[in-house]
């Protein structure tokens, strides 16, 4: 049973890695003379050239026009241009903080280098999409953990966090179901409900899809891997009673995520639930041995302990990664 838990827990990780690998090589630059560009910190942009551009051209801030991609008419004034020791790296410094969440464009008219004109370029500077996807995953898992900061799925959370083995079983089953059902509901919402303006049927559709997914996973697992079914089958029924499974498709519908982003959010929500269950189960196993006042035994003390976890998770609030 242990091996099977491990196997299914690691499968999503491989999927994610494969996806990220595919996405990593997607950036393209319109001028071969420019190797890469990116944000260095909140007030500077770094550009790396393939060769050394002329020093007189580089040092003039007027040669670099920088604007936010969705505000092309408002130029951001470049205060100063620093050249790195290898003469190929250039740092554009700004007087005010840039909004790092948005894509910026650096426009250069013609880049002179060793007497030759290397052509013009519109260089897009943005945080990598890879990082953005990862931040959605971490966001759903830690920063906006569905149990500790959005207080959803508490019934199942309290009910199945008495023992570590139950907690892991529930968490893994839940993660699998939520990823499948969220992807199907994303597809259905984007291609059926939204175009035909049937938004008000969200609740019915999503709960129906969840029931279907649970039924399908149940049937398939029973036939394909009876051992796994024996370990996880009991939790499948409980999945429906968990609000998170409905909350995730609803969030996806209102946030207009694309397929990859939806996948990450669903995975993060499932992973976050697993994490929360595991943490709680670990502390509740200890609580069993503690001398708790009789009126607090059982549920009340579990809630107080959850409150402590929630306080700790508030520390993640507002954290920005990538």
């Amino acid at each position: 049973m242990n091996a099977s838990i491990k196997r299914s827990a690691f499968r999503p990780v491989w999927l994610v890695l494969a996806l990220l690998f595919l996405l990593a090589g997607c950036e393209k630059i319109d001028n071969p003379f420019i190797k890469k560009g990116g944000f260095k910190d909140a007030r500077s942009i770094m550009i790396e050239f393939a060769g050394a551009p002329d020093a007189s051209w580089v040092s003039d801030p007027a040669n670099f026009k920088v604007f936010q991609k969705n505000n092309p008419d408002v130029l951001l004034p470049v205060k100063q241009v620093d050249v790195g020791p290898d003469k190929k790296t250039v740092f554009l410094k700004f007087g005010e903080d840039l909004d790092l969440k948005l894509a910026h464009t650096v426009s250069m008219a013609s880049i002179p280098s060793e007497g030759k004109d290397m052509g013009a370029s519109f260089l897009d500077v943005k945080k990598s999409y890879f990082g953005y996807l990862f931040s959605i995953l971490i966001g759903a898992m830690l920063i906006n953990n569905y149990v500790f900061t959005k207080y959803l799925g508490l019934c199942v959370f309290i009910g199945t966090s008495r023992k570590k083995s139950t907690a892991v079983g529930m968490g893994v089953t839940f993660t699998i179901v939520i990823v499948i059902s969220a992807m199907i509901s994303w597809f259905l919402y984007q291609f059926v409900l939204k175009p035909y303006r049937l938004d008000f049927l969200q609740v019915v559709t999503f709960i129906g899809l969840v029931s279907l997914t649970v039924q399908a996973v149940d049937t398939i697992l029973r036939k394909v891997n009876p051992a796994l079914f024996k370990a996880f089958g009991v939790y499948l029924v409980l999945v429906i009673a968990n609000c998170v499974i409905i909350a995730v498709p609803l969030t996806l519908a209102s946030a207009e995520y694309n397929a990859a982003e939806s996948f990450m959010l669903a995975l993060g929500a499932g992973g976050g639930f697993l994490l929360a269950l595991f943490l709680m189960a670990s502390s509740r196993e200890r609580l069993e041995l503690a001398n708790v006042p009789p009126t607090y035994r059982g549920l009340p003390i579990a809630f107080v302990a959850t409150g402590l976890f929630a306080l700790a998770f508030m520390g993640f609030s507002g954290m920005a990664i990538f």
Binding site: F148, T149, Y151, Y296, L299, P300, I301, A302, F303, V304, T306, G307, L308, A310, L311, M314
Partner: peptide
Amino acid sequence: PAAGFFCVGIMM
């Protein structure tokens, strides 16, 4: 947000 858990626990 976290205080909700304490409140519910104490009232139970």
